[in-house]
């Protein structure tokens, strides 16, 4: 009984697999879109530079904060004297 049900199940699965195989076909993207994107990507070396700028910004802000904290600490030390 169980094997019969498994058999029916497998047959149903096989039908579904056949259906998927026959229906799901790759589509071609618009060649104009592909060409434009390729050109845009080729003209965009700035993305990597942008990242280093951000990193530089973090370093500058971090250094500023550190310098500020150091100044406050030095001033508080001087006031204590």
């Amino acid at each position: 009984m169980e094997s019969k049900m498994n058999d029916m199940n497998n047959k149903g699965m096989f039908g579904l697999e056949e259906k998927l195989s026959s229906m799901l076909k790759p589509v071609m993207p618009d060649p104009v879109f592909m060409g434009k994107l390729k050109t845009r990507l080729a003209k965009t070396p700035a993305i990597l530079i942008e990242k280093s700028k951000r990193r530089m910004g973090v370093i500058v802000v971090g250094a500023g904060l550190f310098a500020g904290a150091l100044t406050v600490w030095i001033i508080s030390k001087l006031k204590k004297r």
């Binding site: 790759p26 592909m34 994107l37 390729k38």
Partner: peptide, 16 residues
């Protein structure tokens, strides 16, 4: 660009 050419159609299809 080479990698783009090799992969753009499959990535587009997957997304589409």
């Amino acid at each position: 660009s080479f990698l783009y050419e090799k992969n753009v159609t499959r990535i587009y299809n997957y997304i589409y």
